[in-house]
């Protein structure tokens, strides 16, 4: 790693001020950023750790009935504390990486990084979550803008993620066993006014909604409703772990499994 300074602000306001320095970079749990720094793929002058900010940690139910998760909340805490309210989200969090990674990695870090194979983007987009930052609220539909690209401005921090709680939801991940990321992952959520289906791991553009499946499942929420629907593998990730066509096939399979598991 190139050397850098580390700052440990204790409030969002302090963190925002620290991030206004030249070449400053926010540090969530570091489970992606620290390996990236080790490979010298990034060279910030200052890392601003968000892990000492108490107001950005924890899970609660807001006045509007939505599940609020602080941006610096670890996957392990979401897995435990969201279980009673939004089991599909807690289950997803409980299978990210491994136990030690889940104790450090954070929801804000995952969403801000927008790895095309990460799990949380599927949950946020599949639930129609709202990403709250120090400056504004961003709908998940507007937040994800392609591989490793989001609507966040320079120095903007995800302080909270608000999830509408679905009637039923499930996430199915076809594991890439070496990395523990999703080769393909599908998050399905059924709401009173419709169904949302979000796919991660498959597209070169990162997480996306499978609208044809949403329409079909909206009128018939059963695995069979997806029969005959296909997505094109032309723009999907092709690598040594699987071709685009293979991933496209998995999208259908994992959607069906998620619907069946959601009940």
């Amino acid at each position: 790693m190139y050397d850098f300074d580390v700052e440990m602000p204790t409030s969002v306001a302090e963190a925002v001020a620290a991030l206004s320095q030249e070449d400053a970079q926010a540090l969530g749990g570091g489970q992606t950023l620290i390996p990236t720094l080790k490979q010298r793929l990034a060279s910030p002058s200052v890392l601003v750790s968000l892990n000492g900010i108490a107001e950005m940690k924890g899970v609660c139910i807001g006045e509007d009935g939505q599940l609020c998760v602080g941006g610096a909340t670890s996957h392990a805490v979401v897995a435990k504390d969201a279980a009673a309210h939004f089991a599909g989200l807690a289950e997803l969090a409980s299978h990210i990486g491994d136990p030690a990674v889940r104790n450090r990695g954070t929801i804000g870090g995952s969403l801000a990084n927008n790895d095309p194979s990460a799990c949380y983007p599927a949950a946020a987009l599949g639930s129609g979550a709202t990403i709250v930052t120090n400056a504004r609220s961003i709908a998940a539909d507007d937040f994800f803008q392609g591989m490793f690209t989001t609507a966040l401005d320079e120095g903007e921090i995800i302080t909270e993620v608000r999830f509408p709680i679905p009637q039923a939801a499930n996430y199915q991940k076809f594991l890439q066993p070496a990395s523990r990321f999703a080769l393909v992952g599908v998050f399905v959520a059924k709401f009173a006014d419709g169904v949302r289906v979000a796919v991660t791991g498959a597209s070169n553009d990162g997480v996306f909604r499978w609208t044809e499946a949403e329409t079909a499942l909206g009128s018939d929420f059963s695995a069979g409703a997806v029969d005959g629907l296909t997505v094109s593998g032309d723009d999907m990730i092709s690598d040594l772990h699987g071709t685009g066509a293979y991933r496209a096939h998995l999208v259908g399979v994992m959607t069906k499994r998620a619907v069946a598991a959601a009940g």
Partner: peptide, 13 residues
């Protein structure tokens, strides 16, 4: 009290 990978956490943290 929580298991973490010491190679992926900064000492300063």
């Amino acid at each position: 009290g929580e298991a973490v990978k010491a190679c992926t956490m900064l000492a300063a943290e």
